[in-house]
Amino acid sequence: MSPAPTPPLRLIFLGTPDFAVPTLETLLALPQAQVVAVVTAPDRPAGRGRQLHASAVKEAALARGLPVLQPTNLKSPDFQQELRSYAADLQVVVAFRMLPEAVWAMPRLGSVNIHASLLPQYRGAAPINWALMHGETQTGVTSFFLQHEIDTGPLIFQDVTPIAPDDDFGSLYEKLKVAGAALAARTVAAIAAGTAPSIPQQLSAELRPAPKLSKDTGRLDFSRGAQELVNQVRGLAPVPTACTQLPDGRGLKVFRAAVAVAPAEATEIPTPPPAAGTWRTDGRHHLRVATADGWLDLLEVQLEGKKRMSTAEFLRGTKINVP
């Protein structure tokens, strides 16, 4: 007589932005699991009318007929009682806020998080941005069991994702969104089978954090090297965007930049370059700024109050007065 089939794990999914939606959809199709409820952020006012908008995860959950919980306080006894009523075996967390222990330790198998870096590198709120800003050539996704300190729990699985030279935050976000969904499916299947590893994270002096981005993170400091600034632009494009000021003080967002290659005509770019922060333009194609070690080409920009455009388009409609 064959043994009775093992029932699927009862899952609660916690997530908010569109980054988490592919993982939710993948888990809904996983035979080893049954998503019984979704926890997401409360609706937020957005747009010109400041009307309330649901999170991407809420929209996806409602489309599948799933119960949705939107607590304002994760420590609320009422919320925790409602959460407990779903009798989850496991919780899966993707791009959600920090959980109190009473929540992450509630299921019998605990809670797992899908993080967009190769932990223990880039612990924190903005791992994709910081990997790009540091010029990494690879990153990835990690599944791990939650514990007290953020992003420190035992590792389960990791998948590496190469970073292409032309990747920016937007393109890498899309790659890792898909990679994270596949990793979550593999992780939940292993936990259901009782074969998931639990590997303590190894600390070292070379670890880089990934703190929340601030307004200062986006300001371009031309006393730095050109490649550092290129990486900064990549790590912040298309949002929240690197920024600077034109010589006349107008604000300028920068979406793409490159280390400038000196042209044959020595008159176009003085050699060696002048002081860092010196602007040059031919008024047609090039808008360049001197950095600590060469020239930075601004390739795609947005003047305050205008639309995003290539530098050639920008220069056709904007006069830049440079020394």
Rank of each mutant, 00 (worst) to 15 (best):
A164G: 04
P273L: 08
Q80F: 02
P127K: 11
D248Y: 12
E174H: 00
L155K: 11
G249E: 05
T241F: 10
P8H: 13
P323H: 04
F222R: 11
L119I: 06
R97V: 08
A190Y: 05
K306M: 00
V112R: 07
L155R: 09
Q91A: 11
P323F: 03
M106W: 09
M133L: 08
A185V: 09
T195H: 05
Q232T: 11
T281E: 03
Q232M: 10
S214G: 15
Q81V: 12
Q70F: 13
A164D: 14
L207H: 09
N73V: 12
L155I: 14
E101C: 00
R308H: 13
A184D: 03
E206F: 08
Q121F: 13
G283I: 12
A290W: 06
P31S: 09
K177P: 11
I191W: 11
L118C: 01
S55R: 04
Y86P: 03
H53T: 13
R97M: 10
I114E: 06
F255S: 12
Y122I: 12
A131R: 01
A290K: 01
A260P: 04
A126P: 06
A196F: 04
A257M: 03
A292N: 10
A33L: 03
A262T: 15
P238K: 00
T267S: 15
E304M: 05
T271A: 14
R48F: 02
P17R: 07
A184K: 11
R280V: 15
T278K: 01
Y86Q: 06
L207I: 14
E59H: 12
A276Y: 13
K177D: 06
S117F: 08
R123D: 00
P22M: 04
R108I: 12
N73Q: 12
A182G: 08
A193T: 06
A60S: 04
H115L: 04
F79L: 02
E136I: 01
K319N: 03
F169H: 14
L176H: 04
V239Y: 14
P67K: 04
K177W: 05
F19W: 03
S76M: 11
A102C: 03
I199Y: 02
R308Q: 15
G124Y: 04
P162W: 05
Q158T: 13
A164L: 13
G283T: 07
I156R: 02
L24T: 09
S223I: 00
V94Y: 00
P162C: 08
T16Q: 05
R123G: 12
P200R: 01
P107I: 14
H134T: 10
T40I: 07
L207E: 10
F145L: 11
T161H: 00
